[in-house]
Design a protein around this nucleic acid. Structure first.
Lengths: 179, 179
DNA sequence: CACCTGACTTCGATCTCTCTATGTCAGCTA
DNA sequence: TAGCTGACATAGAGAGATCGAAGTCAGGTG
């Protein structure tokens, strides 16, 4: 609970290997690592802060510029890339007496990244801000703080050292099931 | 459920603002955003793949180099930084007939980043690998797949649009509680 | 039709990350 | 003590991200 680093002898967390694992060098091809692929889609600080502001409700170009401390060229480039990658979508809007303009909002693909953002936020609050964070996320209705936690599909809370890792065989040029 | 982008009129996910919010321009100081601070600690692709391999069980310099496709200088630099930041810790080890060497393992601070990694992995599997990912994480014992999910402290599963955001007042140079 | 403004684009410089290639160093073996 | 090897460090170059400053452009207003 403290922000101190407890340097004990116990390895803190390590995922256990199970099943028929090909040698690590075989299955780790970078092109097949979803983490690396995710970082290729959203791997810059500016992309994260733009997504953060989109979650916070920003939609207009100027809002993104003001709220992120990023320069206009960077905001324009990121908005274009995130839209091309399907994380944001453009929509027209018009304020009275103004011409129609474009806003940006999250798609399902984009909002599905929220656990990543929340996990980063909570980690930063815990380890980098000993006095606690200033922004709190609360569950609508119940009001309890929201966290990104590891959970299995059976509903159990999962500790970092209670994970088994299995590698599936390389998918053969898939054939219709039960050929 | 499909990987198609459904461009409907409904905003997909937006966090609701509640409470007494200072104007956004006031509370959003970049230095105070835990996401940005987190990205400053672990904001490069190489840092993420090193942490990934640390979770997968790598400890030795050479293992990190082989498994990450990163160059030796990069691995050396990241290991040094991650150790200095307290996410990894060095420990001596010795193989028979060899001199003592240093290994690296995750600290609690480092392994606490696992939800971020898992969230990225799941997002990549879902949105970038339509045929499904090759690496599966299973809960030890129950065997169910493990995900990073949003959950409130009351135990409820939290949908992306069921989050209220509150901003705490700027902490005054804190005084001893109940002065 | 001339102006104004929000939404960008273009340009040039800087900084960071990463690479390949090569050098260094500690300490165990012979 | 000379050699060997794993674990780094150093040097130089290239690619990507970001910045500030300035230019473009569409479409309402007057």
């Amino acid at each position: 609970m403290t922000a101190e680093i407890h340097t004990t002898e116990t390895p803190t967390a390590e995922i256990h290997m199970t099943g028929e694992l090909a040698p690590r060098s075989d299955w780790g091809a970078p092109r097949h690592c979803p983490i690396v692929r995710t970082l290729e889609t959203v791997g810059t600080k500016s992309a994260y802060v733009l997504l953060r502001e989109a979650f916070y409700g920003a939609t207009r170009f100027e809002e993104f510029v003001e709220r992120t401390d990023a320069s206009e060229p960077v905001v324009a480039a990121r908005l274009r890339e995130l839209t091309a990658d399907g994380l944001l979508e453009k929509f027209p809007y018009q304020e009275p007496g103004q011409r129609t303009r474009s806003g940006y909002r999250l798609t399902e693909k984009g909002s599905d990244l929220l656990p990543v953002l929340v996990a980063m936020m909570r980690w930063g609050d815990r380890w980098l801000f000993p006095d606690g964070g200033r922004v709190e996320l609360a569950h609508t209705g119940c009001g309890s703080p929201v966290h990104a936690v590891l959970q299995c599909e059976a509903g159990h809370h999962v500790a970092p050292d209670a994970i088994d890792l299995a590698v599936k065989p390389r998918p053969k040029r898939r054939r219709p099931a039960a050929a």
